[in-house]
Write a protein that binds this DNA or RNA. Structure first.
Lengths: 126, 126
DNA sequence: TGCGGTACCCACCTAGAGGTAAGTGAGGGC
DNA sequence: GCCCTCACTTACCTCTAGGTGGGTACCGCA
């Protein structure tokens, strides 16, 4: 995975799905759009602290190409562009829910120190 | 996402989970181990056509550090090392199932030409 | 007059993910 | 004697995801 414009022949479903969500901000964009329904470019930018404008447009374009979001341009001045999830985008978010739950569980475990960095001496190899 | 040794503070569960599965072969490794239960290094290598030995060891080490797999070394000659999923690894796989289903659906749609790259000349409409 | 907001595009640069190839050391097959 | 297998490690190289900083055209506000 880790190859956003992959488009290559996929080995399995996981492969195809991860291809679409891998990208530093895609998960967050998905989440933001699911939360608010419709968001303008600048709203998204403010919602994802630290994102660069370049990456935001790039990710949004890829997600539009992948059929996850719809981009609506209003011929106004100043320009207004709105982004919404498509049905498939919403289904992707649903499919990501158990993964999110697993992740939250992992954060909890990590906070308890049950997952630790192995640079520390861990255990004599059997 | 796309930062395997991230370990950083996560924004949400999706973030934490994607951190763990992003890596070119991790999804496939997870799948392979889930399918077969226990696999040796060379078996995994043969199961993932195209993987380099370096990446395979690297990914397996990261997954061990993340508490997804258990690495068992037998003090034999020739050396024998076996990899198995931990309980958390198996739960991760369960959590990935709906995502895999979504991905398979996407592959199906893509095959039908319903998702296509708009930049490239795609197909002469029959 | 100048500044900030809108939604971008472009050129340039860097860190790191991932590939390639070689080496290790003991054992077994031809 | 030579090569293959096992499970790696190390050095080196490439490619690209992502960041930085600039520019655009138009408007409202002070």
């Amino acid at each position: 995975m880790v190859k956003s414009p992959g488009q290559g022949p996929y080995i399995c479903g996981i492969d195809a799905a991860l291809d679409v969500v891998s990208g530093k901000w895609k998960g967050l964009i998905l989440w933001e759009l699911d939360e608010h329904g419709t968001r303008r470019f600048a709203e998204l930018r403010r919602g994802l602290p630290g994102v660069s404008e370049k990456m935001l447009t790039q990710h949004l374009r890829e997600m539009e190409r992948d059929g996850l979001v719809i981009r609506t341009v209003y011929a106004e001045v100043p320009p207004r562009v709105e982004y919404t999830l498509t049905e498939h985008g919403r289904m992707l978010n649903k499919a990501l829910e158990p993964l999110g739950e697993w992740g939250r569980e992992r954060i909890r475990r990590e906070a308890l120190g049950m997952v630790d960095h192995p640079d520390a001496p861990v255990m004599p190899r059997p």
